[in-house]
Amino acid sequence: MTESTLFLAAFVVYILAAVFYLSFQFSKKFRWARAGFALVSAAFVIHSLALVLRTIESGHAPFTNMYESLSFLSWALVLAFVVVDRKFKIPRIGAYLILIVVAFMALASSPLMPKDVAPLVPALQSYWLWLHVSVTLLGEAFFAVAFVTSIMYLAADSRRKKGTASESAFSPETLDFVSYRCVAFGFPLFTLGGLIFGMVWAYEAWGTYWNWDPKEVWSLITWFVFALYLHTRIVMGWKGRRSAVIAIIGFLAALFTYFGVNYLLSGLHSYV
């Protein structure tokens, strides 16, 4: 079994899982969601194996180019989904979340992303690569879950206002609460991995812990947005629509930090 075979297998099973979750979405029959979850779990195991193989094959952490990092981000997203679904029992976020995973996996397997195993450039030869990238991406994965639940909240809320909410629908408040918990979980991870580990590594590698490099600045912007989310919510008691909008902006900022900075702005973080 090679890494690319396993990756492809995981990809296919994720697609199947997404189909099952979508069926659950429309039929509201829980057995579809249960099957979806089983498939996601299976794909997650396969995907984990693919990442392990990639690590063995390349001899370094599996996130040193866009293909590897997208694959790892998808994996982190699934992990976040499994954690959130086990804790809050909201399988209906599955359809959207697994669709995002499928989109990332599709992007990773597109021919635009070089998949060759490349030796590590000197700047990346550090165990901080593991700590900095994995913790940051895990934090961003929780932001992604908050993004999904926030969008679902907005949709559910406007359905309720129009009076077209179906009876079986969950209360939008659960979605709002899950968004908050995901931000509250992702924020410390992102702070630790993205900002603090980033500063430590930058200091070890470049001699300056902060360079105002575009990726650093956009991480800080993302951090500001989620700080705003937490302050308005905890201290000012904002909830619902306004909170959801901030969480959505925050995830878009995180996404831009991840993708946009690489393709649109140049800077020190030009590896991935």
Partner: peptide
């Protein structure tokens, strides 16, 4: 807190301009 919020927005905005 209102001031903190205004400052967070201003800092984020200024940072965007810088990139």
């Amino acid at each position: 807190l209102r001031m903190a919020i205004v400052l967070l927005i201003l800092l984020a905005g200024a940072s965007v301009i810088g990139t």
